[in-house]
């Protein structure tokens, strides 16, 4: 075991905390600009220390556990929600050499581990012994499991094309053309479903401020609440990385511009995905809960099954088969 094995993940974690800090600021700035206002601009120049101040505030807040709550589960829940969010990053190939665990089943690992977070959310919701949080947690779980099905099924087209679950092979298979072109339907399904998995607007019903107060984490204060939020933003990082690897060619350069290093290409595409997430949040209104579940089962699921057969059919057509 070399030094990279131990230090690499620690460095990644520090980078991740930096990313989360500035992703939150960037999100608020972008939404501010879209709504024609400056966004946070008081703490530090250009509001640069706003999130740091927020985190410090959360750290200094009293930690309240409601009297009726299930104490041990209540304290455990944020950890259960956070650990898988970080653990999925082990398989993401940032460049051809920057990857922590080169798993032959990388994609399957990501999908399997990421669903554990639902258990953390349900645990927190139930342990709070609060009506709002219980209903919010149940809604959250129903939404996340419903959208997981189209998410998982939509990438099967890519797996059929690559013949591998290794994310490295999937990226390298996109040398000729990125999968967003031949698998455009899959990309649409994947992107919509990932918005729902991330609990982001227009799918932020679990948090729906105006109807459920705050959803599953209504009883959480201080840093325990912060860990639910952290898990959410780490998933933004992970999901944007996964989207980049699956559909946007990962670290592969565009137009043969190989003098720009792969990590910059990765960051560029990754930032584009993250920006799109913020952009959609500022643009779209929240769905109604009845529309939400029907959309997953009646629209996205049949479409993702259709995509599997379309891929199989395109493999048979001589002109197209080189792309599939």
């Amino acid at each position: 075991m070399d030094l990279f094995f131990y230090l690499g993940p620690i460095i990644l974690m520090l980078l991740l905390l930096g990313f989360v800090t500035y992703a939150i600021l960037f999100e608020r700035k972008v939404i501010g600009w879209i709504q024609n206002r400056p966004g946070p601009n008081q703490v530090g120049p250009w509001g640069l220390f706003q999130t740091i101040a927020d985190v410090a505030k959360l750290l200094l807040k009293e930690d309240i556990v409601p009297g009726k709550a299930d104490r041990s589960l209540f304290k455990l829940a944020p950890v259960i929600a956070f650990v898988p969010a970080f653990a999925v990053l082990a398989v993401i190939p940032f460049t051809d050499s920057w990857q922590f665990g080169d798993f032959a089943v990388g994609l399957l690992y990501y999908i399997a581990i990421s669903s554990i977070t639902i258990i953390g959310i349900l645990t927190g919701a139930w342990a709070s012994n609060n009506k709002y949080s219980l209903l919010g947690g149940m809604r959250s779980a129903a939404q996340m499991i419903s959208y997981e099905i189209p998410l998982v099924l939509s990438v099967i087209g890519i797996v059929m094309t690559t013949g591998s679950l290794d994310l490295n092979d999937i990226v390298l298979a996109q040398k000729k053309v990125w999968f967003i072109v031949p698998q455009f339907l899959a990309f649409l399904i994947f992107f919509i479903a990932s918005l729902a998995e991330l609990n982001r607007t227009p799918f932020d019903l679990p948090e729906a401020e105006s109807e459920l107060v705050a959803g599953y984490h209504v009883e959480y204060t201080g840093f325990r609440f912060a860990f639910f939020m952290l898990a959410e933003y780490v998933y933004v990082f992970a999901m944007a990385s996964l989207t980049t690897c699956l559909f946007l060619g990962g670290w592969l350069p565009l137009f043969g511009l190989t003098m720009i290093p792969g990590i910059l290409w990765f960051l560029l595409k990754f930032s584009l995905v993250v920006f799109s997430l913020f952009w959609i949040r500022a643009t779209m209104p929240r769905l109604r809960v009845d529309q939400l579940m029907q959309f997953a089962w009646k629209v996205l699921l049949p479409l993702s099954l259709l995509n599997i057969f379309l891929t199989a059919i395109f493999k048979e057509i001589p002109v197209l088969s080189s792309f599939y």
Partner: peptide, 30 residues
């Protein structure tokens, strides 16, 4: 080696909340 990597990631994932909440305990009012 891959499994060890994942074990290390999970250990770090547990360590961060535990460390942060312990530090928080010294700082926050009760």
């Amino acid at each position: 080696a891959s499994f060890l990597t994942i074990a290390w990631f999970i250990a770090l994932g547990i360590l961060l909340p535990v460390a942060a909440l312990t530090v928080g305990k010294w700082l926050r009012p009760n």
